[in-house]
Design a protein around this nucleic acid. Sequence first.
DNA 1: CGATAATATATCAGTTTGATATATTTGTCA
DNA 2: TGACAAATATATCAAACTGATATATTATCG
Lengths: 182, 182
Amino acid sequence: MAIEKKIDYVILGLLSHEDLTGYEIKKRMDTSLKYFWGASFGSIYPALSDLVERGLASKRNGAENGRNKLIYSITEEGKKYLKEWLQIPAERDELRYETLLKLFFGNEAGAAQAISHIDAFQERIEGELPFLIGAAETLRNNIDLDDTHKYYLLTVAFGVKTYRAYLEWCEEAKKLLGEENQ
Amino acid sequence: MAIEKKIDYVILGLLSHEDLTGYEIKKRMDTSLKYFWGASFGSIYPALSDLVERGLASKRNGAENGRNKLIYSITEEGKKYLKEWLQIPAERDELRYETLLKLFFGNEAGAAQAISHIDAFQERIEGELPFLIGAAETLRNNIDLDDTHKYYLLTVAFGVKTYRAYLEWCEEAKKLLGEENQ
DNA sequence: CGATAATATATCAGTTTGATATATTTGTCA
DNA sequence: TGACAAATATATCAAACTGATATATTATCG
């Protein structure tokens, strides 16, 4: 059995949709996958080399005008490897919320400090939510255009649901903290 | 400026509430902090030694009946260090949802597979939600007993809100996937 | 009284991040 | 047209952290 690196599956998953360069993979991470996964260049590039070495992906030179460009594709073996992983139940779903962490220790710094953390969180969520709602709308309208759209929509809908819950919580939380101050 | 390790702040935060052993810190991580943070023994024990070395925590031997036991406390310097960090706005709030990842690539494996991932997710959330609701109830009833209770409640309420949103999403998602199958 | 679970500390290989370095091309404003 | 910033693209590395494992003692329960 090969070594189980999450990054391998994420990359293979993206390559199963389309051929991509390492840079483009990073862009997908920072946009489409942003709301439930992340990865850095430091893991992407070594993983790509490793996948090629293991025969799970192939590499071709796509240089245009002299710009360095390495395009990666998934191989049949890679598809098999990905499909096997997709069948195993997911184990690790985890959050890493620095905002919540600072709130948990909030008594050290007081209610005003806590409220300012919540405000910052709320602003970020409110700023991102319209984009998620827009993406959901677009996907819903083009659900039959591509096989992948339904599954994209699933994850975007998750984002919308949770973001709305976050915003409700922000109001509740500030009310709870405000009570003490009066 | 000292090195910015998240684990240092988490440990100092816990020690600001009460004196703890490394083992007890791990227990707090796996219960109270579980819903928004995590840490392993492999980071806790080295961090504790490091914190003592830097004068941010102190160590005393609390062995009873011969059982090995090292009890850690936060120092005044440690409290200052923690308070400074609590004032800085949180930057990194991130999810790592393997369930969502497998769903995002779901077209490879099909709707039935996707639904089984959602079912497993839903079962886990439904199993944990009553505990969260119970904890929120207890905290609400004892909100004035301890300064920390209000802040604990804040994070538990976050858990309840998001878990309920997850469950709503599960139903929606399965409906969306079911439509194709008909 | 024997087995299993809980308490407790510790280490380490392997994974990943976050930062940084380097170079080219494209867009934009004047 | 020339200058500057932004985007494209690959690569590396120290430091952080996980997940697994090792070791030992004490508590619990039938």
